[in-house]
Amino acid sequence: MIYGAMKFSLGGSLKLAFRPWVEGIANIPAEGPAILASNHLSFSDSFFLPAVLDRKVTFIAKAEYFTTPGIKGRMTAAFFKGVGQLPVDRSGVRGAGEAAIRSGIEVLERGELFGIYPEGTRSPDGRLYRGKPGGLARVALAAGVPVIPVAMIDTEKIQPPGKVVPKLMRPGIRIGRPLDFSRYQGMEHDRFVLRAVTDEVMYEIMKLSGQEYVDIYATAAKRRIAEAAKQERADKAGRTGRTRAA
């Protein structure tokens, strides 16, 4: 009930304000379980995709969004629940990954759609990064469901990381044909199979999105960018100090 009301209000508002264009909507099955594997450019990706679909899509969200105290925290929790986000506790070394896998399988066992970002985090620069095999591939093989590649287009221009107020422009969504991995059934613990499945999905996302592919994890890229920015600040401070001393 809450999801339907939130989808109607939020989804209708998003479509009216941003007029997203969609290609390949017929590739979404009318019923039955499937995984929607998408690139991740913006915080808003998890809202635009469900807004254009008739079916509910459940994504994973960190548990902190649902447990923050106070009025703002309660409002945030209600909002995320309303749009189909599922809380996952990220505590523990492997807590987040294992919890996400269990949650994803449960969603699929109910015959629903499960949304996942194989990169594991938002792209720091608009490029497509290497997919993490521990989530997408394990869920797909354990549940025995098709994987539908999805490409979000230009959402990073609407709401770049750190920006609160979105820019009004048209994003795009391309939905590819379902990928069948039944040939690997029962092999969800084979790391070479998991890598092969993940790479095949990422290749399809790359073709749909037109993004440049970078064969490293996005988390590593973010660390490099942060370290480079830190070094640049240090160099600038050093130059400023030398100028003042002179």
Rank of each mutant, 00 (worst) to 15 (best):
R127V: 07
H189R: 15
L168M: 14
I173Y: 02
P124K: 01
R122W: 07
E188W: 13
L136W: 12
E156L: 07
I216A: 02
G210T: 01
V214C: 08
P133H: 07
L168Y: 13
A221H: 02
R174T: 00
P178H: 10
L128E: 00
R223C: 00
Y184P: 06
K222Y: 04
A143N: 10
I148Q: 04
K167E: 14
Y217H: 15
R170T: 15
A221C: 08
R138N: 07
T219R: 15
K222V: 03
E204K: 02
F192Y: 09
A151N: 02
D180S: 12
P118N: 11
K163N: 07
L136G: 05
V164P: 06
Y203R: 15
S209Q: 01
T155H: 12
G186R: 10
H189I: 00
V201D: 11
G176V: 01
R183T: 06
V147E: 13
M187C: 04
G210H: 01
M206R: 15
P161F: 01
G134H: 08
V197H: 04
G172I: 00
R170Y: 07
R122H: 09
P118S: 11
Q211Y: 00
K167S: 14
P161T: 11
M152Y: 07
V145M: 13
L194S: 03
L168K: 09
P166Q: 11
L208N: 04
A196C: 06
I175A: 06
M202Q: 09
P149G: 04
I175R: 09
R191C: 00
T155A: 06
I158T: 02
R195V: 00
V150Y: 03
S182A: 13
L168S: 04
A226K: 14
G126C: 09
P124W: 08
R170M: 10
I148C: 13
L128T: 07
V214K: 05
V139E: 10
R183I: 13
I158H: 03
Y217E: 10
A137H: 05
G131V: 11
R191I: 02
P161H: 12
E227A: 13
Y117M: 10
G172R: 08
R223F: 02
P160Y: 11
D215E: 14
Y117V: 05
I225W: 10
M202R: 05
A218R: 07
D199P: 02
Q211S: 02
A196Q: 11
